[in-house]
Amino acid sequence: MERTVRIGSTHGLHARPAKLFTQAVVASGSGVTIAKGDGAPVNAASILAVIAQGIDHGDEVTLVVDGGDEAAVLDELVELLGTDHDG
């Protein structure tokens, strides 16, 4: 199951927002990948891989969730990415 979302955090998906996102992915127990724009998907449970994407405020990313309660996990992660954690 996959969905595309726009990043809400002012500083993009770095530092604290990246940490919160990766923590949520690990806690979900599902396999999750994240891809910036048309880029290749990376393991969303890897904070280094996520940070290295250089995802900025307003960028579009695509999440793919595999396993577990896919719909609920996707809802939670999409909401997390749409929120401004630096505000």
């Binding site: 530092a15 940490k19 990766t22 393991n43 890897s46 280094l48 891989a49």
Partner: peptide, 16 residues
């Protein structure tokens, strides 16, 4: 706390 927690996650990062 945020900085140190992020560092803790780096230490166990699956890609790493």
């Amino acid at each position: 706390k945020d900085v140190l927690e992020a560092q803790a996650m780096m230490a166990e990062d699956p890609t790493l």
